[in-house]
Amino acid sequence: MTSTNLRTFIESIKAKPLIGILIISAFYFFGIIGILSNYSNWFIEKTAFNLSLSFIILLIYQEKYSWSLLWSFSFCFLIGFLAEYLGVNFGLIFGNYIYPDTLGPQIGGVPIIIGVNWFLITFCVASLIFPLKWNSILKIIFATILTVLIDVLIEPVAMELNFWNWENDQVPFQNYVGWAVISFLIFCFYYFIKLQIKNEVAKVLLIWQVVFFAILNLLLIS
Rank of each mutant, 00 (worst) to 15 (best):
T2D: 05
F123N: 02
S3P: 00
V148F: 09
P156V: 06
F30Q: 02
A214F: 13
N217E: 14
I107Y: 11
E167P: 01
I193Y: 03
E11K: 09
L132I: 07
Q106D: 08
N135P: 07
I98M: 09
I193H: 02
G95L: 04
F119R: 08
P156I: 06
A15E: 07
S74G: 10
L53I: 12
S12T: 14
I107L: 15
L70A: 13
L216M: 08
F189N: 00
L22M: 14
T8N: 15
I60R: 00
F29L: 12
I60Y: 07
S72L: 05
G95P: 02
G108W: 12
S127R: 10
F189A: 00
I98N: 11
N135I: 09
G91Y: 01
V204G: 04
I13F: 12
V116T: 15
K194T: 08
T4E: 11
K203D: 10
N89F: 11
F27C: 09
V110A: 12
G178S: 05
F213Y: 09
C124W: 04
F142N: 04
I13D: 00
L138K: 08
V210Q: 10
L36G: 01
T4S: 10
W208G: 12
L205C: 08
A48L: 02
F123V: 03
D169T: 07
A143Y: 13
S66C: 07
